[in-house]
Every structure is written in C-alpha cells, then in structure tokens.
Amino acid sequence: MAKQIITLTVNGDEHEIAVAPYQTLLEVLRDDLALTGTKRGCTAGSCGVCTVNGEKGEAVLSCCALAVEWDGRSLTTVEGVQEGNDLHPVQQKFLEYGAVQCGFCTPGLIMSAKALLDVNTSPSEKDINEAMAGAICRCTGHIKVKIAIREAAKVLREREGGVADGQA
C-alpha cells in the first residue's frame, strides 16, 4: 500500500508527512507528529476526546477522518490553543472552575467548546448543549464544564470590545 506525501499545517506549522491511506488523522497527529494532546478514546466517533478544530474552527473527530483527506489543509489541536504564554480563556476557565477531573477528555472538551465560542460568544444553554453533545466526560459530569464555557464566553465578549451583557 503506497504511502503518499501530504502537506498538513498543524497549529501554524507546516509538515510534510508520508502517510498510508488507512491512517486516520488522529494516528498521524499522535504517532507521526508526536502531538499526544489529542487523545485516543473510543476511536468510533462516540466520545469526542479526539476532537480537533478544522480550518473554519469547526469540531472535527480526528479518529473518523482520513489523514490523506487533509492534504493541503490546516487544523488546530489542543497544543495550539494557548495564546503565547497565556492560556486561552476556555483553558483558563476550565482550570478556575475545576471543570477537569481525570483530565483525559479535557482536550476534546476544550476543542469542542472552542469550536462553539469561535463563532458564538453569547451561547445559550441550548447552544452549549448542542455543541458539547459529542464530547463526553465520564467522571465529573458536565455542570462545571458548562459554567467554565459560559465564563469563557464572558471573557471573549469583553475582549470583542463590548462589556459583558450579563447573558452568561
């Protein structure tokens, strides 16, 4: 099975990698690029721990995507979320509000939350539930996760220039 060279931009860094057609994006990120922040969970599209963000910031299940399909495209993993030396507001608020227990699902939750907040900084309860339905935490439940997302949304709204409008 011939490998093919793909160009993949991850967190702003361009990589040329030889991949077999049956390698998933998850396998390439973890095994070829050593970006092990993205976790391998069910590998069947149910748990969401392998979530990365695509070109438009959308949530992508890297276990159910072929690496060859990502030739010439770019994506963001949890390693690329922080802003310089500072944590991204989503990461910071997960930390502050204890939205982490064992931490295994956290990269997937962060990337799923970021996919939402990148396009909607005033998410309703329903928006949050919909965006997070595909990313599952099995130890702590989602209450603190949702609080952290609402608080992160507040920070992002303030950053957009407006004052927090009290929706969150």
Binding site: G45, G48, T51, G54, E58, A59, V60, L61, C64, A65, S112, A115, E130, A131, A133, G134, A135
Partner: peptide
Amino acid sequence: VGSKHVRNA
C-alpha cells in the same frame, strides 16, 4: 443526526 462533530463530516 449525531452530534455537531458528526454533522460537520
């Protein structure tokens, strides 16, 4: 259908 993650693909 599925989750947002699934619908994106």
